[in-house]
């Protein structure tokens, strides 16, 4: 049992490589500052399909195929497919798994799906059970809005602390070929409930979970922030990132300008009216598998931590007055 470090962290003894990635973004995300790092920007929010849900699935399937194409891998060479999304019963992931015809494990960690998938994939590979894993996730602004909040054409004013669900999908092929970035450690988060009830303020609800996992990572690995070049939270947005910083400062961890949030990076908030920033599974998938992955390949950074953050409420739970429980998983990725 030499792989477990501390209470929540697993050091990967035979770290798998992120062989390739595939990213597909919606038209609005294509107007953001990271558009040049993304593989495909679709022009239609439904991606040529009839419903938003089909559109999300279509983007997810495309992202998976892109990741495989970039590695010149055929689908039959993939041993396992791990995917998760936000729609009820994770239909985007499961229906895509049906299309791909791969052995599949569905994940639900809300917007933490990307980090959860990368971490789990690395652990399964390190365990020697499989030789390659395809990890993917997606989210869709209109599909999640209609499930969690209001019809898309409903004219309500948005709160300044509200976030904008990112439309897009990302996939990563993990295995033991090539010299790409490697997943070297995984910190599995605990579900944290700090009494938040407002489903419009997800950043505030998720921030304590992110802070808890980051603190656990440093204490488990007996390291400090100087051991990392950059730290990316998934989709805390402006409010959540500030709160996360404050929580960490109280625990004696100062991250300064090493701490960034994928939800804040994907949009240009001076031009795009997204209020507190982006959210959704695709926020961390697009920013990490597009922008950060390329940065690691170009040797602009060596050692980064991705903290996927997820809010685990459902429309039923918050209507019944329950608090919003949240989770955050961290994966450490090092340049190959």
């Amino acid at each position: 049992m030499g792989k477990k470090a501390g209470k929540q962290t697993f050091e990967i003894s035979n770290p798998p490589t992120i062989i390739s990635t595939g990213t597909v973004a919606g038209p609005f995300e294509g107007q953001g500052p990271l558009a040049s790092d993304l593989d495909v920007i679709v022009s239609d929010i439904r991606d040529g399909q009839t419903t938003y849900e089909q559109g999300e699935r279509s983007m997810l399937t495309k992202a998976c195929r892109l990741a495989l194409d970039h590695a010149s891998h055929s689908i039959s060479e993939v041993d396992l497919f791990l995917a998760g999304d936000l729609l009820n019963q994770i239909i985007s992931s499961s229906f895509t798994a049906a299309t791909l015809g791969l052995p599949y494990l569905g994940l639900y960690g809300a917007c933490s799906a990307m980090a959860e998938g990368l971490g789990l994939g690395a652990m399964i590979l390190d365990g020697g059970f499989v030789g390659s894993v395809l990890v993917a996730t997606s989210s869709h602004n209109s599909a999640t809005e209609r499930q969690y909040r209001y019809p898309t054409e409903y004219g309500g004013q948005r709160r300044p602390y509200q976030q904008w669900t990112v439309t897009g999908a990302g996939a990563a092929l993990l295995g033991y070929t090539g010299s790409g970035p490697r997943i070297t450690a995984v910190t599995v988060g605990k579900v944290i409930d700090m009494g938040c009830k407002d489903p419009l303020n997800m950043g505030a609800a998720m921030a304590p979970a992110a802070a808890d996992t980051i603190a656990a990572y440093f204490s488990d690995t007996k390291s400090d922030p100087s051991s990392l070049d950059l730290i990316f939270t998934g989709d805390l947005g402006e409010v959540g990132l500030n709160l996360c910083r404050e929580e960490l400062a109280e625990a004696g961890i100062e991250l300064g300008d090493k701490l960034h949030d994928c939800g804040l990076m994907i949009y240009d908030r001076t031009k795009q009216d997204v209020h507190a920033g982006g959210s959704g599974c695709a926020a961390s998938a697009l920013v990490f598998l597009g922008h950060v992955y390329k940065g690691l390949q170009k040797k602009e950074m060596n050692r980064v931590l991705l903290i996927g953050t997820g809010s685990l409420h459902s429309p039923t739970s918050y209507m019944q007055g329950e608090n919003i429980p949240c989770i955050a998983h961290a994966v450490r990725i090092e340049r190959g």
């Binding site: 300044p160 602390y161 409930d193 700090m194 009494g195 938040c196 303020n201 505030a204 304590p208 409010v239 500030n242 709160l243 404050e246």
Partner: peptide, 14 residues
């Protein structure tokens, strides 16, 4: 603990 956190949230909720 939750009470204290909710006070902080109010501070950042513009």
């Amino acid at each position: 603990k939750q009470e204290k956190y909710q006070q902080k949230v109010k501070k950042y909720e513009s």
